[in-house]
């Protein structure tokens, strides 16, 4: 066998290894270049999907924001009690007729509170959520902080907030208060009322009295003074 024949065969075999190696590499790494689709079919149609920029308009939005003063059908919001938490220019003290307070509503409110409020206000509403803790830490470390100025979220258990009528809490969620922005665009109206119901339940839970209990449960509490450890628990002496 001559040398040139062997080397050409070896070269071919080596060259043939290159595409599989490239494929193996492409499968293992991440890439920022746009995906290559050779057969395009009707992948990209001449229609606007979300995040497709529109070159016709300066800001590139294909969904046009409504002109000032335009109200879409169903968006009139006549029901001031339901949409604004207001009755006759006073904060509503009751829930709107279409939002009866049921256990389901409070459960829904709990879920929504844990999504939208818990990061700042904390799981129990004391204003000690994780974003608050992070922000406080950033304030203490000016070099990392990059201009962080943080007002601690209010505890919903403060006297002043416990006494607020439901309409005012609804308004705080809808339009925001001072340093807290409004959540109207993120949370639908029904869910905002559900959150109010849960906030009320939270407040009650932290200021529960013995008289809130059923007589049956109260009987189980026993004598409040007798809280010494029983002998079988061991006192550590």
């Amino acid at each position: 066998m001559t040398k040139w024949f062997v080397s050409i065969s070896l070269l071919l075999v080596c060259l043939a290894m290159i595409p599989p190696a490239l494929i193996a590499r492409q499968r293992a790494v991440t890439f920022t270049k746009p995906r290559i689709h050779i057969i395009q079919d009707m992948d990209a149609q001449l229609k606007f999907k979300a995040q497709n920029p529109n070159t016709l308009f300066n800001d590139g939005r294909s969904m046009r924001p409504p002109l000032e003063g335009v109200i879409a059908r169903g968006d009139l919001m006549e029901d001031a009690h339901f949409y604004k938490g207001v009755i006759n220019d006073e904060w509503a003290t009751t829930f709107p007729g279409r939002m009866p307070v049921t256990l389901d509503l409070v459960r829904r409110g709990q879920e929504r509170f844990n999504i939208f409020c818990q990061p700042c206000h904390g799981i129990a509403g004391y204003g000690d959520g994780i974003v608050n803790l992070r922000a406080m830490r950033l304030m203490d470390a000016p070099l990392l902080g990059n201009g962080t100025t943080w007002v601690q979220p209010k505890s919903v258990h403060e006297e002043a907030i416990r006494e607020q009528p439901v309409g005012q809490i609804f308004n705080s969620i809808t339009n925001g208060v001072r340093n807290m922005s409004g959540y109207a665009s993120q949370v639908p109206t029904e869910d905002r009322w559900a959150i109010v119901a849960y906030v009320k339940a939270l407040q009650r839970s932290q200021h529960a009295r013995e008289t809130d209990l059923h007589a049956r449960e109260r009987a189980g509490l026993g004598d409040p003074i007798d809280r010494r450890p029983r002998s079988d628990e061991g006192g550590g002496e």
Partner: peptide, 15 residues
Amino acid sequence: TQTCMNCHTQIQKDS
């Protein structure tokens, strides 16, 4: 952007 700004009007706003 508003959603990010719920927090970032205050947090690390000079970053």
